[in-house]
Amino acid sequence: MPDVSLWHVARASGFVATLLFTATVLLGILGPMRVGTPSWPRFTLAGLHRNLSLLSLALLGIHLVSVAVDSYVPITWADLFVPFVSAYHPFWLGLGTVSFDIFLALLATSLLRPRINPRMWRLLHWSAYLCWPLALVHGLGIGTDALSSWPLGLSVLCTLAVLAGVAWRIAATLARRRAPDAAARKTTTMARLS
């Protein structure tokens, strides 16, 4: 019977990385919304976002190494960095590779953030909204049991959480933009009534 321990490591690290990346994306969504309380200040969210990103990277590293070392499927080290060249499920693995490459760019630019124009950094950081769904679709497409009950449920819950976070951020941004207009209209109305 073949040793399946590396398959279990790859599978488990992929699932946990998905959860951590989802949490990282959610914290990234909350950060610009200036969410915080006296007991949970905003800088805590930023620190948690950064630390979860690094923890996600560690889990992703375990996932990648276990996939490359496992001889059951023909995935080479180059396949982990160069998208769509693998002999094993080139499309699905390629999506994961593109996501990983984007994540590396996000990590590098975040580490260099003090030396990068803030607008450029923000623009680059928006690519996280591409990185996360690519990784999720990669897992659904290449995972040996990704479409069975609990793995599929995990993917659905992660998707719903991120969509809810994005909807909340869009609604908050629109409300913030409308507030000055409403205040200006109220001031104009009050001036006319005076």
Results as ranks from 00 to 15, higher is better:
120 M>A: 14
120 M>E: 09
120 M>F: 03
121 W>E: 06
122 R>H: 01
123 L>K: 05
124 L>N: 00
125 H>G: 06
125 H>N: 07
125 H>M: 11
125 H>D: 05
126 W>S: 11
127 S>Q: 01
127 S>I: 14
127 S>R: 04
127 S>P: 04
129 Y>D: 03
129 Y>A: 14
130 L>N: 05
130 L>P: 03
130 L>G: 14
132 W>S: 00
132 W>H: 00
133 P>Q: 07
133 P>W: 06
137 V>N: 00
137 V>S: 04
137 V>G: 04
139 G>W: 03
141 G>M: 09
142 I>V: 10
142 I>R: 09
143 G>I: 08
144 T>D: 15
144 T>S: 07
145 D>N: 13
146 A>T: 08
146 A>H: 08
147 L>E: 04
147 L>C: 05
147 L>D: 06
147 L>R: 07
148 S>F: 01
148 S>C: 04
148 S>G: 02
149 S>W: 00
149 S>G: 14
149 S>M: 02
150 W>L: 00
150 W>M: 01
151 P>Q: 10
154 L>Y: 04
154 L>N: 14
155 S>E: 15
157 L>S: 15
160 L>C: 02
161 A>F: 00
161 A>Q: 15
163 L>H: 01
165 G>C: 06
165 G>E: 13
166 V>I: 14
166 V>N: 07
166 V>S: 07
167 A>L: 12
167 A>S: 08
167 A>W: 02
168 W>V: 01
168 W>N: 06
169 R>K: 09
172 A>P: 03
173 T>C: 10
173 T>F: 13
174 L>T: 07
175 A>N: 07
176 R>S: 15
177 R>W: 15
178 R>E: 15
179 A>K: 10
179 A>F: 09
180 P>T: 11
180 P>W: 06
181 D>P: 05
181 D>E: 12
182 A>V: 11
182 A>D: 12
182 A>Q: 13
183 A>R: 07
186 K>D: 13
187 T>G: 05
187 T>L: 10
188 T>P: 04
188 T>M: 13
189 T>N: 10
189 T>C: 02
190 M>V: 08
190 M>P: 02
194 S>H: 11
194 S>Q: 11
194 S>T: 11
